[in-house]
C-alpha cells in the first residue's frame, strides 16, 4: 500500500471505529465532548511541579483504553507524529530551571526536570483524551454536540467539511499517483518536471470534486445549516457517566 492510500485507509478505519456499536460509542456525544474538555482543563490546570497529581490523572486515558477496548498500539501508531512535538515543548526546562530538590543516587533531580516531565505528560494526556473522543465518536456526532452547546453553525460546518475534504484530497491524490505510476513503471517516484502539473491537477480535481459535493448538497435541500441526525436525549446512564468522571476529576485534582 502506498503512503497515500495508507493515510486514506487510516481515516476510514478511524471512522469505522467511531461507528462501532460499543458502550462507549453509544454514550451521548455531548457527554463525551464535555468530559474531554473538562479532562483537558483539569490536566492543564495542575501546577508544573506537581508531578504526582499529573501521574494520577493518567487514570482517565488508561481507564478508557481498557474499558473502551481501544487498541493502545494503534493509537500510538496514529499519534506518532504529534507525540514528538508534544515532547519538544518541555525539553528546555531542565536547562533554565536548575534548582536541585533531591538526589537519586548520584543524579541530582532539579525542578526543571520535574516540570519537563509534567509538561510532556500534560501534552500526551491531552492528545490521548482527544484521540479517545475521536475514536469513539463520529465526526457528525461531535459536530452535533458542538451545535448543542451553541458553537456557531458556520464554524461547525467548516470543521465537518474540512474533515470530508481531507478524504477527497487524499483520494484524488492517490488516483493521480496510481495513474502516473502505471504509465511510468520503471521510475522511482515522480519526475521533477511533472510535479507542477500533478499538483496543479490535484488542486483542480479536488476543487471540482468539492464543487460537485456542494452541488449535490444543495440539490438535496442544504441551505447553509447542516441537519445532524437527532440523537436520543441524554439518558440517566449518560448523566451518571458524566457525574462519575466529574467526580473522579474533582477528587484527583483537589482532594488526593
Amino acid at each position: 500500500m502506498s503512503k497515500l492510500s495508507g493515510a486514506y485507509y487510516e481515516i476510514h478505519h478511524m471512522e469505522q471505529l467511531a461507528n462501532e456499536d460499543q458502550w462507549v460509542n453509544r454514550i451521548h456525544p455531548l457527554v463525551k465532548l464535555v468530559i474531554t474538555v473538562l479532562y483537558i482543563m483539569t490536566v492543564v490546570s495542575v501546577h508544573k511541579y506537581n508531578l504526582a497529581r499529573i501521574l494520577i490523572l493518567g487514570v482517565y486515558p488508561i481507564a478508557m483504553f481498557i474499558l473502551g477496548e481501544i487498541s493502545f498500539a494503534d493509537s500510538i501508531r496514529r499519534v506518532r507524529l504529534i507525540l514528538p512535538l508534544v515532547c519538544i515543548v518541555g525539553i528546555f526546562n531542565p536547562f533554565f530551571d536548575r534548582q536541585v530538590i533531591a538526589h537519586i543516587g548520584n543524579i541530582a533531580i532539579t525542578t526543571g526536570m520535574i516540570s519537563m516531565v509534567t509538561l510532556i505528560l500534560k501534552g500526551v494526556y491531552t492528545v490521548f483524551a482527544t484521540y479517545i473522543l475521536v475514536a469513539t465518536t463520529t465526526i457528525e456526532k461531535i459536530c452535533y454536540a458542538m451545535r448543542l452547546v451553541h458553537i456557531p453553525g458556520i464554524l461547525v460546518t467548516q470543521i465537518l467539511l474540512t474533515y470530508r475534504y481531507i478524504s477527497v484530497l487524499l483520494k484524488e491524490a492517490n488516483t493521480i499517483m496510481q495513474a502516473y505510476l502505471l504509465r511510468a513503471p520503471h521510475q522511482k517516484g515522480v519526475q521533477m518536471k511533472v510535479w507542477g502539473s500533478l499538483v496543479g491537477q490535484l488542486l483542480l480535481r479536488s476543487i471540482d470534486r468539492a464543487d460537485n459535493v456542494y452541488a449535490s448538497m444543495t440539490l438535496r435541500g442544504y441551505h447553509g445549516e447542516f441537519c445532524y441526525a437527532r440523537q436520543k436525549k441524554c439518558s440517566g446512564k449518560d448523566y451518571a457517566y458524566l457525574l462519575l468522571w466529574v467526580a473522579v476529576f474533582g477528587i484527583l485534582r483537589y482532594i488526593i
Binding site: 459535493v213 448538497m217 442544504y222
Partner: peptide, 21 residues
C-alpha cells in the same frame, strides 16, 4: 462518486429528508 459525501450509506440517503425537516 462525487454525489455522495456522508459517512455511511444510510446517512447519505437520510441527508435530504433530514434537510426537509
Amino acid at each position: 462518486e462525487s454525489q455522495l459525501f456522508m459517512n455511511t450509506v444510510k446517512e447519505d440517503i437520510a441527508f435530504a429528508p433530514r434537510n426537509y425537516g
